[in-house]
């Protein structure tokens, strides 16, 4: 299953901006975050194909997953 993963802001450091990856069927957003060593507590906005999703959402062939860190400062 080929999906595109886009990382934003601090998630890019030491990783990548955009990557096309072959994941096994049934891979969830949480699985992708774990493979990329992104702590769940740092996850902010998560979108598949420009729609907000949660950690347990399964990816499908051709999806684009975008992950943003949680920003809470002021």
């Amino acid at each position: 299953m080929i999906v595109t993963v886009k990382l934003f802001a601090s998630f890019r450091t030491g990783r990548f901006d955009i990557e096309t990856v072959d994941y096994p069927a049934g891979t969830t957003v949480a699985d992708v975050a774990d493979r990329l060593r992104l702590p769940h507590s740092e996850l902010g906005i998560m979108m598949i194909n420009s729609r907000h999703v949660k950690l347990d959402r399964e990816l499908a062939e051709g999806d684009t997953l975008a992950l943003f860190p949680l920003l809470g400062g002021g």
């Binding site: 740092e42 902010g44 949680l70 920003l71 809470g72 400062g73």
Partner: peptide
């Protein structure tokens, strides 16, 4: 936009 937030601060 904070739908997945559970506890604590952000990456700041």
């Amino acid at each position: 936009i904070y739908g997945t937030w559970k506890t604590g601060k952000g990456v700041e």
